[in-house]
Every structure is written in C-alpha cells, then in structure tokens.
Design a protein around this nucleic acid. Structure first.
Lengths: 347, 347
DNA sequence: AGTCAGATTGCAAACGTTTTAAATCGTTGG
DNA sequence: CCAACGATTTAAAACGTTTGCAATCTGACT
C-alpha cells in the first residue's frame, strides 16, 4: 500500500486553517503571524509534507528546473566531459533547490527540436547550452524567445550579447607556444578537428597570434585536421604529421583525447616523448595522467566551470533583464613529462 | 518579445472545436473522427504546439520523468561512472519521450531525504538507484511506498524481491582467479574498500568461492582495505600488501581505480608488471587502457547497462504489478598486459 | 461606545491539461 | 415518421497550488 502524500488541504484541515494561510505560512510570508507560521512549519515537518511540483509550476509559472540537452555522441565514445559537467552543474544548482533535467536526443531528432520541447513545455526555467558551434541555431532560438540561458563557450560573433562562461583557450595556446618556443622549438604541429566549433577557432587563433607576436619567420606550423568522431581519420592525419620529411618537434593538440592519440602514434613510430617530440593537450582528462610519460596539458576544471554556470543561470533566471553575464576562466598549466627541449642536434 | 506558447484553448478556438476534442485528437483516441484527428494534428504542427508538462502532470498524475539522485562524491574526485551511466540512461528513456531528472544532494542533506523529495513532489514516475549499500534505506523506502524503481546492483538479502540489474562481479572474480591460478599464481592479494557496499561482498565472495572450489591449500589470499575516498589510506594499504616479506604475485582490485593505484605503487617500488606482479581490475574505465602496461580488467559496459535499466524502469512504470524484473550481466574480460605467469624462480 | 488602523486570515479565481459523463448528430430499421 | 443506435463531439469537473482581494479580528484612540 503506497503511503499517501500529504496535501495542502489535509494540512489545512488538520490545523484548522485555510489552504491560503498554510501556503503562505510555508512560504514564509510576513503577513502571517509568527506563531501561526511556526505552528504550520512544525506540522508540515511532522507530516512530511512536500509540495506538488506540477501544481506549483502550473500556477506560478516557475518549474524549479534547469534544462540541458544531453550532448550527442557516438555509441562507443567515452565522454569524460559529461560526468564532470553534470556533477558541477548539480552542485551549483542545489543551493537554490533547483534540479536538473536532462533530455536526450532520439534518433532522427535534432538537438534544436529537443531544446524547443524543453523550453516550450515549461519544463525548465532556464537552460544550459554546451559546445557552441560557429553558427549556433540553439542560441539564436533562445535569444529570439528571450528565454534564460547560459552558454558554455562563446560565439565568434561578439555583437550578440548573451550569458556565457568559457575557458580562455586562446591564452592557453599562446602560453603553450611561448613555453615551447623558449625550449627551442621552431617547427610546430597542430592537431585539430573538422567540426565548426568555436573553441577550435579560438584556440587555433590564440596559437597563431602568439606566433605572430614572436615575429620569428623561422617558426613553422603544420596543421592536421580530422573529424572529431572518426578515429581512423584522426590516426591518419596524425601520422601524416609525424611522417613528413621534416617532422615537427612539438605538437599541440586541440584537446587531450587528440594529444593521447598523438602520443600513441608517436610511440608506435618509435619516437620517444619528450626527447623526440613534445606534446601538449588541453582539458586534463583523467587518462592524461596515466598515459606514459604523463601528458602536459591545461586544466580547464570543467566541474568548477559547470558549477559557476549553474550559479550564473540562477541569477539570470532571477533577473531576466540584467546585463549579460560573462566569465572567462584561465586554465592552469599542468606540467607533466610530455614536453621538453627541442632536439637541436638534428638541425 | 518572447514568442508566446500556443495553448490548447487557442488551438481549439482556431479550429472551432472544443478543447476536449483537440486534446483527444492529439492523443490519438479512436473515438475522434479520423478526419478531425488529421486536421488537428496538422494545425498543432503548424502552430508548433507543445503541451504544458505541469498541467498534464497535475491532472494525469504522470510526469514523464524518471528521477535519479546525483551520487555524492568528493570535491576532487573524477567519477568516470556518472557520465557513462547518464548517457546510457538517456538513451534507454528517449524512445518513450521520457526525460531524466537529476537531483543533487546539498551539504548536510541525506541522499534519502532528496530521494523522498523527488518521489513525493511528484516530479518523477520512477527512479533509478545506484550503488546499493548492504543495508539500503533508499530501497526500503521505495518499497514501502510501492514506488517504481530499478536498482543498479543487488542487495545481499535475496528475500526482498525488487527490480535490479547488476553485473556479475562474483563470476568475474572467480574467472580472474582461475586464470591467474592457471598461470601459476598461488599467493594473491585483494584490494578492497571499507564501505559496506554490496558489490564488494559479491566480488569478494566470488573470489573466495573460486579459491574454495579449487581446493588447493597452498593458495594464500592477503586482503588490503581502505576507505573509498581516502587516497592516502589507499596508498598505505596497497604498500602494506606490496612490502610484506612474502609479496603476492597477483593482485586483484575491486575496481579499476584501485588497480591503477596498485600499478602506480608497484612501479614506484621498482616492480615490473606483469613480470613481478600481475594486476587485474574491474570496470574498464578509460584510463585503464592508457596506464602502462595496459590494465587487464573486466568491461562492465556501464552505458549499455544503464540503457537497459532505463528500459526496465519504463516497463515497471507501465505495469506496476508485474513480477520483479532482474537481469544479471556478464562482464567480459579485457585482456591487456598487466597479467602474466607467476614468477616461479623465487620459490 | 464608536471608529479606525493594522494585523491576520480566508474566499475564490486561475494555471492548462485530462477525463467522466452526457449531449448532439446522422443514420438505419421498423 | 419515429425510435434507437453508433459515431462523434462537448461541458464541466478535477488535479494541488499560488495569489489578488476582501473579510474578519484585535486593540487603541477619541
């Protein structure tokens, strides 16, 4: 026999008060006598009263939920990002009693249509959008609806003001270049993805800007590109980079998974890291610490970022007309053993 | 200007039909004339009508959500489990248009109280419970309420019938022992956790049973125990195991994270794996492939399990009175390079 | 005693949907 | 031409809460 859920009406009857008063007392309204408020609170606690979310949402227009569309990924792909992000988001939201809804995208559906559903069904008071694309229809939609959201990542178009939090990939990649340059490296490789994600541009541009700043014409940069989820193409692209006549002495990867692939292929080709090749990644996923000899990378602290995104979103929901919130996080260099001085004997 | 959401009333007015008819037409009731149904469906599509979740939930008593309480974990802990699990669950639920609610546990709250909130506020039609403890008050609560749920993991008490899916850790650990025994190992180590989780017992018992089955009195087993989230204690316990006069030649770890720690400490102690020590884990987390020389482990395919759990839960929600659903998954051995023949020269 | 202000409390509407029971329509058989 | 039936549609209640407005109560002041 399922124990029944106490309703406001019952609580009111039991206390010999009106539903209105009980509701207000629990909401802590000042207009209800303090004594009554205490009496009601205690009775509610005793009865284990929990307000019905649906009824509350229906009348107040606030669901107490924040939505997120589950990022799509291939069937055999491990995504170290999601677990961290979700945990952080939960942490950021919990202080205000807000829960998270995750909506998956079914086969044949677009991510946008799922987002629309979440927004228009009133399930959520705000949403989080991750992995921003160069032309992102999700952001366009949310903006047009004037629906509260915070993006993890930036658009390239800086005219479009909105709420975002991003890690400063451009700066990090500049830092990586400077460090490697100072170690004597002049011939660089960059492993990147084919998808039109904005973080690709930002990081790539950060690297290019650092090279330009240095103003040394002897610096060379080879770029290898492969679709994000195509392992075969990735391996091929990396090997093209590794097996040119004049091989780069340092390779920067757009993110750790790519860097780990580089290390694997380098090992397969008989190269010793960091003696023959320096490798630097970005993200600091768990595997990076274990992959020999330990990947030097930038820690983006996804969990912490997500937590802050959660808090930002709550602010945005609370005050829709506030000026756009933006936050640029500086990732920190995690120096392990995959980088070192350039092999100069060769030149 | 936020575009307005179309409501049933508007749709009805526009079609010159009653709200009732429109509602029924969209639900596909046979009693509504086919022609009308088509007309309504088309108009709804055009208007981009999305039913309001709260209103629907309030009257129907079904929220279309499945709940899960975000597993608690330390601030600096990476949990490879969660991302996989959530993705799989989403995949399993999406076919029925069900979304997932994740509720985080705030500081000072108990996981049970959050679960109660989720259940009693009507947020969810069913819940998923992971990481079953020996005496699990969450299961007791859900059962007493007769609320639909599926557990990832089993209780030791087999009298209590409920819906669960579990990986057969007992069998896997038996398999690990047999394999190692056949490779000549006689002195074993087991690294386990202090927390009263049922999977600990099941795996440990599986190992003990395999040893007993073998009936070889020369087999020895040393057990090292440490709290799950205490890294220092874990390292200490492992080193106690590694630095006894007569060191085990093979160590089985309760799960991969422990196994990776064993490999790290072994390397630090100058031991070569698998020559001096065989190590076997369980879970097959991403890092296990990278940690040198590659951890031999069992793949529990969390994502696939979670997917199935999602499907099971939908079944349970659909028919509350059905017999308990149970499913035991056989993990598959992933043979990498961390195990090998026992070093016999020593004896 | 009457009046009035301020402090409390309660009535009733509203939120958008589903669902029960009943109404309406058109048709067929007598 | 009427009754009855099946097919289709509709009115109205219900879900549990919040909230604008009105009602009541309690003293204090005149």
């Amino acid at each position: 026999m399922p124990a029944r859920v106490t309703k406001l009406k019952e609580l009111a009857a039991q206390l010999d008060l009106s539903i209105t008063t009980v509701s207000r007392a629990l909401a802590g309204h000042q207009q209800i006598a303090l004594k009554t408020r205490e009496r009601v609170t205690e009775a509610a606690r005793q009865a284990g009263y929990v307000p019905n979310t649906a009824a509350r949402t229906l009348v107040s227009g606030r669901s107490g939920f924040v939505g997120m569309v589950l990022p799509i990924r291939g069937p055999n792909l491990v995504d170290s990002f999601l677990g961290e992000f979700v945990t952080g988001l939960g942490e950021g939201l919990v202080s205000h009693g807000t829960d998270l809804i995750l909506a998956a995208v079914a086969q044949g559906q677009s991510e946008l249509s799922v987002l629309r559903h979440v927004v228009e069904s009133g399930r959520a008071d705000g949403v989080v959008v991750t992995r921003i694309a160069e032309v992102d229809e999700r952001l366009a939609y949310l903006r047009q609806r004037n629906f509260p959201f915070v993006a993890h990542g930036r658009l390239l178009d800086t005219d479009f003001a909105y709420n975002w939090l991003d890690t400063d990939g451009a700066h990090a990649f500049g830092e990586a270049f400077d460090m490697l340059y100072d170690l004597g490296h002049r011939h660089f490789g960059l492993v990147t993805i084919a998808e039109p994600m904005t973080f690709r541009h930002l990081r790539q541009d950060g690297l290019a800007a650092a090279i330009a700043r240095r103003g040394d014409p002897s610096v060379m940069l080879d770029v290898a590109t492969a679709p994000r989820f195509d392992r075969g193409a990735r391996i091929q692209a990396i090997n093209r980079l590794l097996h040119t006549a004049e091989r780069p002495t340092a390779i920067v990867a757009l993110f750790d998974e790519l860097a780990l692939s580089v290390m694997e292929e380098a090992a397969r080709a008989g190269l010793v890291i960091p003696r023959d090749l320096s490798v630097i990644g970005f993200d600091n996923i768990a595997a990076s610490a274990y992959a020999p000899p330990g990947l030097t990378t930038f820690d983006a602290s996804i969990r912490q970022c997500a937590r802050e995104i959660g808090e930002m979103l709550l602010t945005v929901i609370g005050d829709k007309s506030a000026a756009p919130l933006t936050r640029l996080i500086q990732p920190t260099l995690v120096s392990r053993a995959s980088h070192g001085p350039a092999l100069t004997g060769k030149k």
